[in-house]
Design a protein around this nucleic acid. Structure first.
Length: 377
DNA sequence: TCTGCATTTCCTGTTT
DNA sequence: AAAACAGGAAATGCAG
């Protein structure tokens, strides 16, 4: 089922690590890719399986930990859902989580977790464990803390999702006319969510997932393994040669059945489009609102949108043709609607995601610009 | 393990 | 003519 109208939804920009070192826009989408950069000790490292040497002075780290961890002891996070957490909320939760499990707060390198809730919720087990590593703390202890923290996080996340789902069953019937009601229901729900009886499943003693899974890419390489797998890709022009090569069967080519790893829940195609439209980095440069009041949007650079989708799904072979096929499947349920006369223009249907936004296409209103131009206002 | 859903891939034909 | 569109068919991956 698609959560078309989730109460809060991550923006594309929120999915990715803080200010990656490369300036290339598409690199923002590589957080799900195995072996790609992860943020630790203020630096990016390319391998989840090693514990890199921190660049910061380790003594300073420990000192920082001792002195500052109490600054984060506030309880704001308890009344919020995870995606609303600030980096301080994340740290507060982390410390309380570790302490409640009998660990010493000084063994938790909380400065590695100064991230917002969205980023935290997208962390994989390996990344949490890796961030937990500290040269002055026994590796096994760090690993254990990391695993428990990860399990607690997942338990909390699944409880949140469960709560959202039950709220939005109600909302799905008519998301537009009921929007206000739904919002108020959500607000109520949000505020009483974790104030009293939050009891996550205690799976902290489960064995750690096999991180070796991450060492290999489960998706096929961009080059076909054999001519038999992609017969139609042959561009020899030799008709007879073509006839000899059996056509590739329709459907996704078989990946490796083994070495599968869990990816974080990905957004659906309509949600992905909505998120791009909400993100100043992509709207209006590669996708933009054509008629916001009707939910109509236009692909400015369709190939780039498809590429982003492909990168998010770790699929280098994604094209706009395939992406648009996925979009067309959403016509059936009125999540998306075709706009016949205009090319590259689509429309969110009445069952589409909530696309309410203050400033479509991020066009500054005149008064705002005037205010900015005034030196002292 | 099974099932259903959301894709992914390829394809043929049509429209712009 | 090329690109975009439409939708069938078959396959995968994931979640329940």
């Amino acid at each position: 089922m698609i959560d078309y109208a989730r109460p809060y939804e991550m923006n594309m920009c929120d999915l990715y690590p803080p200010t990656p070192p490369t300036s290339a826009r598409l690199d923002d989408f590589q957080v799900f890719k195995k072996g790609n950069a992860s943020y630790i000790y203020g630096n990016y490292y390319n391998n989840y399986d090693v514990y890199p040497e921190p660049e910061m002075d380790t003594t300073a780290n420990v000192y920082h930990n001792l002195v500052s961890s109490r600054e984060y002891r506030h309880e704001d996070w308890k009344s919020k859902v995870i995606v609303d957490w600030t980096d301080d909320d994340t740290v507060s939760w982390l410390i309380e989580c570790a302490v409640s499990q009998g660990f010493c707060e000084y063994d938790v390198p909380f400065y590695n977790f100064k991230v917002c809730g969205v980023e935290l919720s997208n962390m994989r087990r390996e990344e949490v464990i890796q961030r937990m590593a500290h040269p002055n703390v026994d590796l096994n202890l760090s690993k254990k803390i990391g695993e428990i923290v990860y399990d607690k996080l997942q338990a909390r996340l699944s409880e949140e999702i469960h709560r959202q789902t039950s709220v939005f069953r109600y909302a799905e019937s008519d998301p537009y006319t009921q929007q206000e009601t739904v919002q108020s229901v959500l607000d109520l729900d949000k505020h009483r969510l974790y104030t009293s009886d939050y009891k996550p499943n205690d799976s902290s003693l489960l064995p750690a997932s096999d991180s070796s899974d991450d060492a290999e890419d489960v998706f096929r390489t961009s080059a076909p393994a054999s001519p038999f797998s992609y017969g139609s890709d042959s561009k020899s022009g030799d008709e007879e040669e073509k006839r000899k090569i059996p056509k590739r069967l329709p459907g996704r080519p078989k990946g490796s059945g083994k070495n599968r790893f869990k990816r974080p829940r990905s957004v659906s195609v309509p949600e992905f489009l909505r998120n791009l439209l909400f993100d100043e980095r992509y709207c209006p440069s590669i996708i933009k609102w054509e008629d916001y009041s009707q939910g109509k949007f236009r692909f400015v650079k369709p190939d780039e949108v498809a590429k982003l989708w492909g990168q998010m799904k770790q699929n280098d072979n994604m094209t706009f043709e395939k992406f648009s096929r996925a979009m067309r499947y959403h016509y059936r349920q009125n999540v998306l609607v075709s706009v016949p006369t205009a090319r590259l223009v689509y429309q969110f249907g009445h069952k589409g995601p909530d696309f309410k936004t203050q400033n479509p296409n991020f066009v500054k209103v005149k008064s705002e610009m005037d205010l900015q131009d005034m030196p002292y206002s």
